[in-house]
């Protein structure tokens, strides 16, 4: 699972109001090179929750990869270095083993072989 997907996931256990962001516990992760596509990055940027992205990148030790504050979208048009960092954070870091923890209930969804298990128990539906 890439951070792009993590950024979109929200806990949907019945009754949970603040299921976002799921806290990322990464025990094992890899970096894989992905084709750089500026159009995709600029298109997806307004939909990204910036603090969640920064937070998840930090959980891997990428402390200076991204600025704390969401950059202005005009900067993405001009600052190639920033766009590449954004690309790396979003698409090139893959979580292989670990878990996703609901911020409200503490329920942990395990991640095995890169696949989060989001199946809910019957009393969570």
């Amino acid at each position: 699972m890439r951070l792009l997907t993590h950024n979109m996931l929200s806990c949907n256990i019945k009754g949970v109001k603040n299921g976002y962001p799921l806290r990322l516990e990464a025990e094992k992760w890899t970096e894989k090179e992905v084709d750089f596509n500026a159009k995709f990055l600029r298109g997806i940027f307004p939909k990204i929750d910036w603090p969640a992205l920064v937070g998840s990148a930090r959980s891997f030790g990428f402390n200076d990869l991204l600025p704390d504050e969401a950059p202005d979208s005009s900067l993405l048009a001009s600052d190639d270095d920033l766009l590449r960092r954004f690309h790396h954070a979003l698409l090139e870091i893959h979580v292989e083993e670990g878990g996703l923890v609901c911020p409200e209930t503490g329920r942990r969804f395990p991640i095995n072989k890169g696949i989060p298990n989001l199946l809910l128990h019957e009393d969570e539906v």
Binding site: L9, S10, G19, I115, P116, L118
Partner: peptide
């Protein structure tokens, strides 16, 4: 990216 999930439980997005 792949998610093990039951669509009948709703998509958590």
């Amino acid at each position: 990216d792949l998610l093990l999930a039951d669509m009948g439980q709703g998509l958590g997005l």
